[in-house]
Amino acid sequence: MSNISNISNIFIKTENLCFSYDNDGEEKVPAIKNASIEIEAGSYVAVLGHNGSGKSTLAKLLNMILLPTSGKIYINGRDITDPEMSEDDMFEVRRQIGMVFQNPDNQLVATVVEEDVAFGPENLGVPPEVIRERVAEALETVGMTAYARHAPHRLSGGQKQRVAIAGIIAMRPECIIFDESTAMLDPVGRKEVLQTIGRLNREAGITVLNITHYMDEAVLADRVIVINDGEIYMDGTPVEVFSQVDKLREAGLEVPQSTELLFRLNALGYEFAPGILTTDDCVAAILAKLSRTE
């Protein structure tokens, strides 16, 4: 994004970030190479990349689950690669940047929904009355209030994932990273979770990083960052990124079906404007073209 002028508005900033996994003496495989990105507070960013491209690694670097090999990371203006960082500072970073993972079963710690949501605030040492308020509020936000006393293993995948999101919201984060959070869900569950994500971004002003390999999810974001082999490969609005179909294919990625269709039609000589991403827009564009030719 080129329109960033106000430095204080940037929530996440990385400078020449590098990371390689330790491979037991064998040669180290770099997972992130020289990544420099800036993410504005309140933005909705999709991070795309095929399996093993380093997108999950990037997420884990941002909330200090992994520590970078070299380079800098600034969260809210604070350098988190600073060796002076205390343990409390580290937990403050993790509070600010919540993370929702792929498998809902492996991130729920309690056998009752409300107790699970309370887990984060409890760890932060929030007083009991405040925890109650926050749990009620978080469940309300994700629309799971009616299930507060249910056992999570009886819920559907989408519901479990919304409980996991509530557990993060209850810690009052500024940013939430969704690490393929919809990958294990059925279409209904995916829709529920995506609607929740969109609402959090619009209504609560939470910065959202949605790591995904679903193109139609990336379309919902304000900005798309494509990672390929640990490098920032493309960065721009969904329209800018998805209009470069060839470049995406080189990175082993597909484009949304509508874009794909119009791309092929264009190859046959039709002239559709680039950057049509959703099914509705695609239908409208084709209808418009048809009525003109009639």
């Binding site: 937990f91 040492g125 009991p128 993060i168 810690m171």
Partner: peptide, 16 residues
Amino acid sequence: AMECRCYRGGEGRTRM
């Protein structure tokens, strides 16, 4: 996931 939710053992932990 627990580390991401700031779990650090029993110290300083409150209960709902």
